[in-house]
Every structure is written in C-alpha cells, then in structure tokens.
Amino acid sequence: MLDIRIPIGLLFSVLGVLVFVFGMATLSDAQMYAKSLQININIWSGVFMAVFGGGMLLWSKMSKKKK
C-alpha cells in the first residue's frame, strides 16, 4: 500500500521551503518579529521542516532499497 513517509516527506519539504523563503523575504521586518522576541522564527522552522521532510523521503528510499 501507500508508504506514508512519502506524503509526509513531501508535505514538510514544501512547507519548509515556503516558510523559509517567506522568512528570508521578511528578514528586515523587525516589527513583525517583535512578537517572536526578535527571532526570525520562520527561517528556523523552515529549515527544520525541510530537513525533516527530506529525512522522511530519504528513509523511505533507503527502506525500499533494502527490499
């Protein structure tokens, strides 16, 4: 059946890139990031999600190879 790691991997890769790019685009917007204690939380979340999503895809690929 469906390998759930693939949609999870894809979803987080897409969201990760989107949020990361948005974080870069709003890099100089200090007012917006006043809420998050002047941390550009979008960049960090974006990177984390992209890495997590990529990891899921990789895991799926590796377990397929084994079989």
Partner: peptide, 11 residues
C-alpha cells in the same frame, strides 16, 4: 496569537 508572526502562525 501572542508569539507567532505570519508564517509559523499558519503552521
């Protein structure tokens, strides 16, 4: 609402 700016707020 208190902590998250647009982007992570959607998340």
């Amino acid at each position: 609402k208190h902590y998250l700016p647009a982007g992570v707020l959607g998340l």
